[in-house]
């Protein structure tokens, strides 16, 4: 079990992580979710003992990272954001060295390295120099390194960044496989990853925890009102009247044109069971309901809600910046063209 209590880190006066507390039970997969620069890596560095905290404690199986770093480090396999691989070493040599560094007894090193390489499917590149490997393979070598020493806990800092979609799927599958005998904490800023792999999520933003819960709970808790999308054939005013007069309906938030005579109504209602009286009323009024969908708020909405969506002003500024960048690029291209033209002349 990993217990994190009031963990805080200041870089000078700038707080990177403030008062974070959560626990990870055995055999759990915990997603650590947050936008870039939220303090994910800082927290993970503190859990693994790479970075001392300003205040607060991390207990791993009851051992305090500040007092018993050796015991804690023996229990943790850490894959940092940038895999710590030596580019001039060969894969097998590197893994054997890492096994030694992690205190794996000499007799077990070879078999552990072999198992880790098979698990990550890098056995066929074991003789190659790491610097010549692709990013995906380098990531896998780092992953294999984290598995050495059979750590009880695996801490993975953005394990899928920079990988192609097939590799991402592979890493996710691997995380699911590993969760059978490891407790895994992994960070990401990609939502789909969390839904694909984790049971529980910690959402963090600007160094503070915004939510710690299971995914389903999060999705449910943040939406008090339900939203229905109805595709209805008929006269708009008549339908609007019918909908508005039904009990339980709060308001019609939008009406979109679908095809002639068919419109999509987005309706805010109190609860799911308003659907029945609404249907009955619409049918009684001779309106053909072609489609009904309950709009569920996804984790994406939860995430945006918790981490703060960009304001209109910000997005306008972003757009201007984007435009400015494009114009700069265009100008540069022009200049280059002119220069080349002169040289040709």
């Amino acid at each position: 079990m990993v217990e994190i209590k009031n963990l805080t880190k200041y870089y000078g006066v700038h707080p990177a992580v403030q008062d974070i507390s959560f626990t990870v039970g055995d055999h759990e997969v915990l997603g650590f979710l947050g936008p870039n620069g939220a303090g994910k890596s800082t927290t993970m560095n503190m859990i693994t003992g790479c970075l001392p905290s300003t205040s607060g404690t991390v207990l791993v199986d009851g051992y305090d990272i500040a007092k018993d770093p050796m015991e804690v480090k023996r229990r943790i396999g850490y894959l940092p954001e940038l895999p710590p691989v030596y580019p001039d070493m060969r894969v097998r040599d590197y893994l054997t060295f890492a096994a030694g560094l992690k205190g794996v007894p000499r007799a077990e090193r070879k078999s552990q390295v072999n198992t880790a390489m098979e698990r990550l499917r890098i056995t066929d590149v074991q003789k190659r120099i790491i610097g010549n490997l692709s990013k995906g393979y380098r990531q896998r070598v780092g992953f294999a390194m984290a598995l050495l020493g059979k750590p009880k806990f695996l801490i993975l800092d953005e394990p899928t960044v920079g990988l192609d979609p097939t590799q991402v799927a592979e890493v996710r599958k691997l995380i699911r496989e590993l969760s059978a005998d490891h407790t895994i904490i992994f960070s990401t800023h990609i939502l789909a990853e969390v839904t694909a792999v984790c049971e529980r999520v910690v959402i963090i933003n600007k160094g503070q925890i915004r939510a710690v819960d299971t995914i389903t709970n999060l999705e449910n808790s943040l939406t008090t009102e339900k939203i229905l999308r109805l595709k209805i054939e008929g006269e708009i005013t008549k339908i609007t009247n019918i909908i508005n007069s039904t009990k339980g309906v709060q308001e019609i938030t939008s009406v979109e044109y679908e095809s002639s005579g068919v419109n999509i109504f987005t309706v805010k209602v109190d609860a799911d069971d308003v659907r029945k009286p609404l249907m009955a009323a619409l049918l009684a009024g001779d309106c053909m309901v072609l489609e009904v969908t309950a709009v569920k708020s996804s984790l994406e909405d939860v995430f945006v809600k918790l981490t703060g969506s960009p304001t209109r002003k910000q997005s306008r500024e972003d757009a201007f910046q984007e435009l400015g960048r494009e114009m700069d690029a265009a100008r540069e291209a022009d200049e280059r063209k002119n220069k080349n033209g002169k040289e040709d002349a």
């Binding site: 790479c50 480090k73 940092p80 710590p84 560094l101 205190g103 390194m145």
Partner: peptide, 9 residues
């Protein structure tokens, strides 16, 4: 690469 030995026992 220093994270390797910083996180090792």
């Amino acid at each position: 690469t220093e994270t390797l030995w910083l996180s090792a026992p």
